[in-house]
Design a protein around this nucleic acid. Sequence first.
DNA 1: CGGGATTGACTGACCAGTCAATCTGTTCCG
DNA 2: CGGAACAGATTGACTGGTCAGTCAATCCCG
Lengths: 204, 204
Amino acid sequence: MARAQPAVDKRRLILDAAVRVFARQGFHTCRVSDIADEARVAYGLVYHYFKSKDEILDTLFLERWDVLLRAIAEVDTQEIPARQKLYAIAGFIVDSYRHDPDLMKVIIVEVTRAANTFGRTHLPQIRQAYEQIAAIVDRAQRDGSFRDTVTPDFAALAFYGAVEQVLTGWIFSLLPVGDREYEDAKTLIVETICGGLERVEGAQ
Amino acid sequence: MARAQPAVDKRRLILDAAVRVFARQGFHTCRVSDIADEARVAYGLVYHYFKSKDEILDTLFLERWDVLLRAIAEVDTQEIPARQKLYAIAGFIVDSYRHDPDLMKVIIVEVTRAANTFGRTHLPQIRQAYEQIAAIVDRAQRDGSFRDTVTPDFAALAFYGAVEQVLTGWIFSLLPVGDREYEDAKTLIVETICGGLERVEGAQ
DNA sequence: CGGGATTGACTGACCAGTCAATCTGTTCCG
DNA sequence: CGGAACAGATTGACTGGTCAGTCAATCCCG
């Protein structure tokens, strides 16, 4: 039985240290000893709590992705226009980055975009996010607020791609970072995907 | 002096084999001996032509990215609407994937999206593509064909992000593959980013 | 005292990169 | 024309270092 109230949760300590190390050096280029050092914990303890180095990353991803999937599902239950739903989802992801940039960096760089390794492993989870977004677009097309020139699947891909690319812009320092920029980004992503870049003749 | 017309260019043979191996197993998980085997060449020959395993990937990326940058620049010299320029760029990238999916997979997965390793190394090249696209958007905003609600930098990111995500969809088998799908994708990407998802009141 | 928590030295596997040896085609001289 | 001399191409066994994962010993709480 686990202790009721341990002074410090070493398992959590290791996970948090791993986030920092993975973000700094990347999963492949860091050593397990780097994680142990960062957590100020003995090497062997890492293997007391985790079966392997891979399992640490898996845990981090699944923990966070589950939160994301729930957030999207929650947004979808609200009675608001599709544009506002997409705004809420983009906002949630941007705020996740604001709250813990390292964690989001790790999830995107090491999992979501790692087509040969963890991305393949977690494809079902990733796919689920796309499907939930596609469902929102689909409903908007049926109620007439979205045009049906683009398939929902495709729209979901483009929307999520734009969001991820913006985070990548921050990760790569290609975009300026700051509270103002984060708020702007939410609006701009939705404005681009929903409103489009082109001027429309006859609109306002 | 190099032989005028060698029966086979072993250097090329190694590069092409590396594309297949990197696409199949990923850069980090493959061994140099896998590349040599795939090329049906002795292990040591790889090091006769390349300084290191990294240099092989660098070569592949730089070769192809140079072609892309030239293509974008070429498109931009034409006297056509911005939407058609973006269509041409999306088309070029999609056709690159159609022509050699393995190579594009490697470039995207192992370089463009590898924020901790090769992505960092080649950031200047990657940035250049964004800047060229942003310049197209900027000009379209000045001539009035694009709205100026979204900054050109941001629009470039969203556009490129959507394109890359569609390729990722093919790489992950999330999207159906085929000549028809490739052509549709070109249109849909541009339709989404330029036209937007929303129905516009009063338009046609 | 019993058992989970914690330690860190150790091992076995793996693999990038080296290198000395060999091969193959070219050049040039007698 | 034969063949000597050379140079780059090609070979693959080997080395040195790295590191994930193991494990026996120790600690410490209840």
